[in-house]
Computed example of a mutant assay.
Amino acid sequence: MSRIATLTGNRPTRVAVAAVLGLGSVAGLGLAADAATGRVRTGGENLVVRSGPGTSYAKVGRISSGTKIDIICQARGTTVTGRYGTSSWWNKIGANRYVSDAFVYTGSDGRVAPLCKDSGSTNPAPTGAIKDDYPYRGASSGVDRWNFYKGQCTSFAAWRVNHNLGVAFHNHYKNVHWGNAQNWDNAARAAGIPVYGTPRVGDIAVRSSGSYGHVAYVAKVNADGSFMVEEYNHVRPDAYSYRRSTRGEGSEQFSAFIRFKR
């Protein structure tokens, strides 16, 4: 999501107490300082274990329903709907071994273990053109050269449009105020820029839901219709991430794709 300069998923409540080792508190929230435990609940079938926190990672095993697991840490990844609702949290249970939290009973709807050190991205960004080359990385305040707030998704998207596509885009491009991310698809239409329902590499993906919406740069389109995006301020505040996404209205998805002319 993004705040913009004007300068001119629901889950069933788990009522039981988590079996957590060493409970701590951060900013008043009950977060685990050490690893936690959980129990796999799938309704019968085995739960797939993947090499990373997302469905695009390789399958490396299966765990039977009812098995107790030790959760080393947790990372954001692909959104999955399971026995306990919809969640983008993935539980690391070993080296290169992750399971979706949507199928694990922990006694809590939130995070119960530390963040994994590599949780800044759902997928590791490949070398080459796809990388964090954002000129304001590390900044969390102030206005950028395109009149968006530094460290926000809109600022990074503006950088990609300028740097990758060679379009001199800014917050009042073509005499239209682009504003918050949730308004970008409407702003594009008002500016005469085409908006599509399916992505191509180079598009700016738009999610209009949420307080501010979200925008990201489409870096790759997969054969199954999913796509990889580069973004800021989604997986971690004011930070870069590269992840797999799909079309839709969910908090991890995008529903519109702006196609700037190159």
Rank of each mutant, 00 (worst) to 15 (best):
S140Y: 06
P114K: 14
T6F: 11
K131W: 04
E249V: 12
H172Q: 13
A33L: 12
A58Q: 15
R243T: 10
R236P: 00
T127L: 11
M1A: 15
A191D: 14
T78M: 05
S108D: 15
P114Y: 12
A19M: 11
W89D: 07
L21K: 07
C116N: 03
H172W: 11
R262L: 12
C153G: 04
G85V: 09
V206K: 08
N233Q: 00
R145N: 10
V215S: 02
T154R: 06
Y212R: 13
G9E: 13
G225K: 04
F260T: 07
H177W: 08
T246C: 06
E231M: 00
S64F: 08
G22N: 14
A188K: 01
N10R: 06
D133Y: 06
N180V: 13
V48L: 08
V104H: 00
L23N: 07
S2G: 15
R189T: 13
A18D: 08
N46G: 07
T37R: 03
V17C: 07
P199G: 08
R14T: 08
N164E: 14
Q253R: 10
N96K: 15
M1K: 10
I72R: 12
V143Y: 02
V80N: 04
G52D: 01
A223I: 03
A256Q: 14
D185L: 08
G192Q: 13
F169C: 05
V161D: 01
R244N: 13
Y232C: 01
G138P: 08
R207H: 13
D133E: 15
V112Y: 00
F148S: 02
R41K: 10
D185W: 00
F254R: 04
Y212D: 12
I63R: 06
G77I: 12
I71T: 13
A157C: 15
C153V: 04
S208P: 01
A36W: 00
N123R: 10
W90D: 00
I193W: 05
A188T: 06
R97Q: 15
V104F: 01
T55C: 07
G38S: 05
G66M: 08
F257L: 12
L165Y: 01
